[in-house]
Simulated scan of single mutants.
Amino acid sequence: MGFHTFDASEAERLDRLDRYRWVSAEELVGPLVEAGVEVAADLGSGTGFYTDDVAPHVETVYGVDVQPEMHDRYRENGTPENVELVASDVADLPFADGELDGAFSTMTYHEFASDAAVAELARVVRSGGLVVTFDWAGDGTGEQGPPVEERFTADDAVAALEAAGFEVVSAATRTETFGVVARAP
């Protein structure tokens, strides 16, 4: 289960506005703004589609992606001044302990979900900071997104976050996706 990496040669698919059908900018940005997040990391930022939605609301956002080709595409699209691109695996982030006020991921949790990655988030997000995760639901139909066998459920994400000490603020499953908001230990 999990660890599916999006094919960078298909990057143009990540810039389509119909992605808002699965997670809107408002539901992503809202919890981050409400929590006063100023320094955030987009985990699996890809072409910057959702990074660009968060950037106007924070001081700095790190676009983290394991594939440098995605950063190349993001640069071609135009990168906001307050976005810094970081080539890294989520399980080995180049940030100091508590350096981030928050982190978010949109449709990428299945690509990095592991005990090591969640522990790394607990390390780099300051105590009380926010982690906002939206992804394809393991109990979805599989008609969109990665195959169902490569996905996790909201319950899986909640269990992983709680095991690392996070306090889950909200968790919801929708038709094909889930959303989880949690506070760092």
Rank of each mutant, 00 (worst) to 15 (best):
G129N: 09
G102R: 01
T79C: 06
G2S: 14
E81F: 03
D115C: 03
F134C: 07
V169G: 01
F104P: 02
A182N: 07
A41H: 01
G48N: 08
Y109W: 10
D156M: 03
E120V: 14
D101Y: 08
V148I: 08
F6T: 07
T177Y: 09
S127L: 10
G140K: 07
A122Q: 08
G140E: 05
A8K: 11
G165V: 07
A113C: 10
F95W: 05
H4C: 04
V180K: 00
L93D: 00
Y62T: 12
V86I: 09
A11Y: 10
A160V: 05
D89S: 13
G44C: 11
A25Y: 02
T5W: 11
L14S: 01
E26R: 14
D135Y: 03
F178Q: 00
E99D: 13
E176P: 03
E26Q: 14
D53Q: 14
A113Y: 02
G142V: 06
A119M: 05
A159F: 09
A35P: 12
P80S: 03
E26C: 03
A87E: 15
Y50V: 06
V168P: 10
S45A: 13
H4I: 09
D139F: 04
Y109I: 09
H110V: 03
D92A: 15
A113S: 12
E111R: 05
F134K: 07
G63A: 15
V148L: 04
T79F: 03
D15Y: 02
G30K: 14
A41T: 07
